[in-house]
Design a protein around this nucleic acid. Structure first.
Lengths: 133, 133
DNA sequence: GTTATAGTTCAAGACTTTTTGAACTATTGG
DNA sequence: CCAATAGTTCAAAAAGTCTTGAACTATAAC
């Protein structure tokens, strides 16, 4: 877990891979969410799916070149690779985000996290509680 | 074979379905080809894949709402649903076509048909004899 | 009528995708 | 040290994708 996560080089990003990664409703909602909050962590989205399942989807986005993961302690801070995508396929990412906002099914998914009760977007380091059990 | 082929209504076109259909190199090349020639038939692309395989890919594009098939004799004349896509997801199709042109792997596939020896793009109907009904 | 052409449909097989839970690593805090 | 948290990895199962060839339908040419 300490070795660097795989990220394709800018020039290696392929259109079929990008579209394939974006063709899943969960992942489209993740991209919409990242577009809105800038940076997030895997665990912020557990309302959508299990931890394992999210790890899988985040890996697919990362391996397609859509996101980058920065390791920070036990967290992975994930964000969109806006500049690389813009360089490789100018205008594509903003266009896909725009289209996703117009698909009710995707927007509804995104709302699940948007209007959540708890502060899931920025998980607070929980002051490691006392031994209590 | 005489009943109308399924086409989703304009409002039923979903982004994940569109992106899924576009995430295959063969289908991206088909879209690029249709963008260039306007209208084509299934058999024009047999250099890329078998007849059965092409039928499958064309069905996927049609069922995602990306293309329309007009039955004309034994042919199906296939074209892009530019207006419907523009209405549903403004700017998306031109953007995807533009991006596809910048992916060497897709462009190379498209070239296979672009610079072909035979006149595969517009299969000549052998001058329908006066017998016509 | 017969034959040819354009395309679909079917079933099989190889492969890929996604979800699950259990086991695992790495880091933080006490 | 110990325990909790964040996330990955593994294997299994269910479902979906794509290619193939054979069988099929519908139209057109003769």
């Amino acid at each position: 877990m300490s070795r660097p996560l795989y990220h394709p080089e800018r020039d290696q990003i392929s259109l079929p891979a990008v579209l394939d990664a974006m063709s899943d409703p969960t992942r489209l909602a993740i991209v919409l969410y990242l577009d809105r909050v800038g940076e997030s962590v895997c665990g912020a989205l557990t309302p959508w799916a299990s931890k394992t399942s999210l790890s899988y989807h985040f890996a697919r986005l990362r391996e397609a070149g859509i996101t980058q993961s920065r390791i920070e302690g036990t967290y992975r801070r994930i964000s969109l690779r806006r500049d690389d995508l813009e360089a490789r396929f100018p205008g594509l990412l903003p266009q896909l985000i725009d289209a996703a906002k117009q698909d009710p099914a995707i927007a509804a998914l995104e709302d699940m996290v948007a209007h959540q009760d708890g502060p899931a977007a920025e998980p607070r380091r929980k002051a490691a509680r006392p031994r209590a059990k």
